[in-house]
Amino acid sequence: MSNDIAYPVFRTPDPVLALSVARRLMMFGSCEYTKVSLYAEIHSVAEVRRGVERLPEGWFRGQERDGECDVPFEDLPAWLVGVRWSGLPADPASYEGRLPVEYELLDQEVGSVEDVFTAAIGPSIGEINWQDLCWPDAPEVGFHGESKHAEVTLLLNTRTREYNELSDDHTVLVHVRSVDIDGRQVREPYAHWLARQVGLEVIGPGQRC
Rank of each mutant, 00 (worst) to 15 (best):
V83C: 14
L80H: 11
T153E: 08
M1T: 08
G142W: 05
D132P: 07
Q108V: 06
E74S: 08
N157Y: 03
V198P: 01
F73T: 09
H43S: 12
V52P: 09
A191G: 01
E114I: 01
L88Q: 05
D91Y: 00
A40C: 15
K148R: 14
S37T: 09
D132F: 09
V179M: 04
E32V: 12
V179E: 06
E127L: 08
R84Q: 10
L19E: 00
R84I: 14
L156I: 13
E102R: 15
D66E: 12
C209K: 13
S44V: 07
S178Y: 10
G97S: 11
G67N: 00
D107H: 15
G183R: 08
A46M: 15
A46D: 15
E96N: 15
Y39N: 13
L80C: 14
G199Q: 04
R184N: 14
I5S: 00
Q185N: 11
R161P: 08
H175W: 10
R98G: 03
R98S: 09
P136K: 12
V116A: 11
R84P: 11
F10C: 03
V9D: 03
E127V: 10
I121Y: 13
V81K: 12
T34P: 01
L38Y: 06
E41D: 11
E127F: 08
V16G: 07
I203Y: 05
W85L: 09
V202L: 04
V172D: 00
S20H: 13
E151Q: 14
L155D: 04
S44F: 09
C31Q: 13
M1S: 12
Y39F: 10
T158H: 02
V152A: 13
E165K: 05
V48H: 11
V172Q: 00
V45W: 03
P77S: 04
R177F: 03
N164I: 07
D14V: 06
G142C: 02
M26W: 00
G67A: 01
P13C: 01
E32Q: 09
G62E: 04
P189R: 04
Q207N: 03
V202K: 05
E151T: 08
R50E: 15
E104K: 12
R84G: 10
Y190P: 01
L133Y: 03
N157C: 09
S44H: 04
A195P: 02
E57I: 14
H192Y: 07
